[in-house]
Amino acid sequence: MINPKTQNKIAIGTLYGVAGLVVLILMALLGYILISGLPQLSWHFLTAPAKAFLKGGGVGIQLYNSFYLLILAMLISFPIALGAAIYLYEYAKDNWVTTTIRTAIEILSSLPSVVVGLFGFLFFVVKLNLGFSILSGAFALTFFNLPLLTRSIEDSLRTIDTTQREGGLALGLSRWETVTRVILPAAVPSILTGVILSAGRVFGEAAALIYTAGQSAPALDFTDWNPFNISSPLNPMRPAETLAVHIWKINSEGIMPDAKAISSGSSAVLVLAILLFNFAARYLGKRLYKRLTSA
């Protein structure tokens, strides 16, 4: 017979142990990636184009592609997700249509990204004839991101108290005015946090992009900003290997002599970028919230 006090101690000890294990694994992983990757980083590595057969290549174009794709995907998915979330939370009646939409979003958000990628390949690349391109990639990422973002924005709206809605309506604001002028501004910090966090996920996504944005990164001319030129960084119709895809590719078929170093360096950049997104999300969210709510 163990007395409750000992029992409690054992339980707490076990929980600490489990939590500690998780932290340890995470630290080991991060540490390994950073220790093997950080020494590879240099200005040259971050800006130079990749080399297929020789050593000394960089990830400049892949890095740029990752950001460009991220921005495009966000530009497409954010307005849609915002609209969907507002409809679902502020307007939709609680009936079977709404339930169906919610279930669909739920299922979409648990879809493996490789399935999204293959769907993107069949639909955007082949059927719509967009080819391996930034645009195909951005659409695929939108599919991947939409359900997650919609849910996160809906959760943000949920955190705004009903009394705020009543307050707005009781002042003689219409439903729409209440949503756009009271609820949304109040929800901005939390929505922003959600957007940045989902940006981190999109930034690190590889499987959805391999068959949509392609696995090659043609040389870019960073002095040519005419989006219709094939070597222009802005051209949305060019294939665009991203950093995450680059890592996957080097490890599966890289034949440059310094493949291992480049892969380590790229992983470190990716992890750092995602960490940066996370910290930025927390910092900006907190700051905005503070600015909006207290003196």
């Binding site: 307050g167 002042l171 501004p185 709510t293």
Partner: peptide, 20 residues
């Protein structure tokens, strides 16, 4: 209803200022 609520205002149990 929008016009009605402009002419018939309401104050609630829980103070609910907007976060501005």
């Amino acid at each position: 209803t929008v016009q009605i609520r402009k002419e018939i205002g309401m104050v609630f149990q829980q103070p609910n200022p907007f976060p501005f």
